[in-house]
Nucleic acid binder design. Structure first.
Lengths: 214, 214
DNA sequence: GAATAACCGTACTAGAGGGTACGGCTTTCA
DNA sequence: TGAAAGCCGTACCCTCTAGTACGGTTATTC
């Protein structure tokens, strides 16, 4: 928010820091054990504090979970906004986007978050809603907007930019992501680059304008 | 296995039937509430029987879960094998495959299974392994094999059939699947057909041989 | 230096969960 | 017809969990 730590007293600053620490510990625990598998007592223990303190910050397990989701999606969105900020050649931009995106969805963090969301979005509809509204949807919109500009510029053939964006996003959630999710595979930077190049190639074959296609 | 119900006494037949009933009830419960969120007592209650009976069939919750996974993946694989059995025109076959596949991954069953697997494969590596080894991998192999035959026949351009298969599978786990998974969206048959046609179109643009491309 | 906000540890309630034990009823099967 | 397998209901044990209560301790603030 608009608050600067410097304008706060030590008490308030410590409180904010402590809250953040709780959220981060809880996020790890939720990602590792799921919602039902995570106990408040365990969080309090790992935090080092007492249960009273924990309940002082979050009046219930559900509130803590909501705070974790808020925190994680905000960070997710910030990173992806950043990825899409720069512009350059179509192939280079798409490749860079895919690298960043695949890196995220094959990282332990991203994978854990995806697991958590997939598991709980059935029981807690707002979990999926928050994740979708702050993750996939805005990223898809930005990507589609970028593609529209490329279509106008003639580097992409006339087509539906929204579908093109969906294609790239789906391809980025491909083999590497599935193997990470299901088999615990640890993708190397080389793996990620290779997959990003494959995705970019598939995309260019389907959507690049004929004169610029390889 | 190779056993025929007719060769069994009533006792054995009843026992098998009862076991199957338990597995099906447990599957629903696991898909709806997750592993940790499912209680053995609840399963026993829904089964109509007593806890003793339940423990008589499965000595622990983990054993029951494993049985559920085995059952679900076997059915999954059988259905997908069936889908890939017929052959015809490239575009028609791919479209039919996509329709079946997308129908499955946007069905409540398929979605629940995917949720369950995604959630538990972190804690139980064998869950993801079983699912992968009997779902995505054999399907990918069959699809790649089919694509190789099409490449040989000249209807697909020379390319890596494995990557082409990955592309189709990834695209089928696209927008519709994500919306079902995260937002509880109920896809209509029309939605599924539209997505299948879009996937097929993207695939053909990227992999059809130039003379047969539209 | 005193009021106070935050923290700690611990002990507690109340409930739910996995898993066990047991005595009696029903069905199969020889 | 009678043994045995299977099923049922219930009461039970032990552990874990969410959440509460409370008295003492540290750090901030005025």
């Amino acid at each position: 928010m608009g608050l600067d730590v410097k304008t706060l007293g030590k008490r308030e600053a410590n409180k904010l820091g402590r809250r953040q620490a709780i959220v981060e510990i809880a996020a790890l625990s939720f990602m590792e054990h799921g919602y039902a598998g995570t106990s408040m007592s365990a969080i309090a223990t790992e935090l080092g504090g007492s249960k009273s303190t924990l309940w002082g910050y979050f009046p219930s397990k559900e509130d803590l979970f909501a705070a974790v989701m808020d925190d994680a999606t905000a960070e997710f969105r910030a990173q992806l906004d950043d990825v899409l900020a720069h512009k350059g050649e179509l192939a280079d931009t798409v490749l860079a986007f895919c690298r960043k995106f695949i890196t995220k969805v094959t990282s332990p963090d991203g994978c854990g978050l995806y697991r958590l969301v997939a598991a709980e979005s059935g029981r807690f509809p707002e979990v999926g809603r928050i994740f979708s509204s702050r993750g996939r949807e805005p990223v898809g919109r930005l990507l589609a907007h970028y593609f529209q500009s490329q279509i106008d510029a003639g580097t992409m053939r006339p087509s539906d930019p929204v579908r093109a964006a969906h294609m790239v996003l789906s391809l980025c959630l491909g083999d590497l992501h599935q193997r990470t999710l299901l088999l615990g595979f640890r993708a190397s930077p080389q793996d990620i680059v290779a997959e990003a190049e494959a995705v970019t190639a598939d995309f260019l074959r389907a959507y690049a304008s004929s004169e610029s296609a390889g």
